[in-house]
Design a protein around this nucleic acid. Structure first.
Lengths: 210, 210
DNA sequence: TGTACATCAGTGAACGCGCGTTCACTGATGTAC
DNA sequence: TGTACATCAGTGAACGCGCGTTCACTGATGTAC
């Protein structure tokens, strides 16, 4: 009989990095079965751990969901960061970020819903830290705007941009565009460019793009 | 002892208009306790009827929810219709409709979420009839656009407007604007006017509004 | 280096709950003759 | 006008399920001396 030391299948009693593993299990479950598949027991089971183990790392289910959402924002931020490298033309970057934003939502619809709408229990909670810190998602998306609009319009422009892209992403993942266009990404590119041209195209006398 | 005929509290065995009563009970529960409070049993109970009675009128819970959402779209459509009477200036009407739209969402957040996102079970279902018939909500909101944009841009303009206003409404009801502005309605008016001016303000040589 | 012991990170059984839905039923209504 | 009977619209008990969470526990680890 092999000693336990040599039994690869024998998991150590202590996991080592269970918190991270739980967040990843939860994200995977969300991806595969949607928010309904995301039960605490399923998350624990997928991480190879008993149903009670998560309580060592999270106060309750809501706390785990918050960590999943936070992880989602990190991933979205990374995508937007990549998009901002697509050239030096500010308008082109904005379109690239818009496309990346909608693509992220389309690739992770249930995660995106969790990030923004969350479970009903969050309604009264302050979850502002998740999305609005200026160095995070929203900030990245709108950091370029300062170069395009007068200072006095910056707040309005930021809110306009965010509303537009969030609305577009939401309509796409909730299947509210009918008939669903065959190429969502091409549509996103077109409408984002249209929006950008209208809102920023004529500013400061610069040439329109696209 | 009074005869049953004289007992006002004695409900007749047959309800008479239970279907409508159930939709109204469900809407009220949604308003009071959110989507989590909307169980089939609670809906039946509030209508003063046994837990099984709804099955005479709806195939299952999802069918009841669909009826509630449909009712919501009717109410939203009525609000937008009223807003369109606020004058003859097309841009002014568009702003009024935008404000009415966001106000509807803010007044009925859980209903609005049900209408657009719905329960997970709807994800694969075709619910397009709810929102996209051209004579309904979306159509009302964008019917005015034809006067403002070239025919070739109409599709893009409609999608832009809808994305913007749906995104704004969603951010408001999901509390994603921090700090929450003290007067959401004033903010809505400002940003909608800003959006309208940017997107339609310079078209066809007409003067900008607001 | 060895040992005692506090602390940490898991286990596993069980509880209580509300849910959607099934089942077999009964009271009320409408209609053919 | 009366009656038989099909159909409609409700009742009420019960089922099975998965859930989040509680409880008391045990194995593993780190540290003071």
């Amino acid at each position: 009989m092999p000693d336990d030391v040599y039994d690869v299948n024998k998991r150590p009693y202590h996991h080592g990095d269970l918190r991270r593993a739980l967040v990843e299990s939860a994200s995977a479950l969300l991806d595969e079965g949607g928010i309904e598949a995301l039960s605490l027991r399923a998350v624990a089971g997928r991480a190879g751990v008993s149903a009670m183990a998560p309580y060592r790392h999270f106060a309750d289910k809501a706390a785990l969901l918050a960590a999943v959402a936070e992880h989602g924002f990190e991933r979205l931020r990374a995508r937007l960061g990549e998009a901002s490298l697509e050239g030096r033309d500010v308008r082109r970057v904005l379109v690239a970020q818009g496309v990346a934003y909608v693509r992220f939502a389309a690739d992770n619809p249930d995660l995106y819903r969790l990030m923004f709408t969350g479970p009903p229990a969050w309604r009264e909670t302050d979850t502002s830290g998740l999305a609005q810190r200026p160095d995070t998602t929203f900030g990245l998306l709108t950091a370029e705007l300062a170069a395009l609009v007068p200072a006095g319009e910056l707040d309005m422009a930021m809110l306009t941009v965010w509303s537009f892209i969030h609305g577009l992403a939401s309509l796409v993942i909730d299947r509210r565009l009918t008939p669903l266009p065959p190429d969502v990404e091409a549509l996103t590119r077109r409408v984002t460019a249209f929006f950008g041209e209208k809102v920023f195209g004529g500013e400061k006398g610069q040439a329109r793009f696209l």
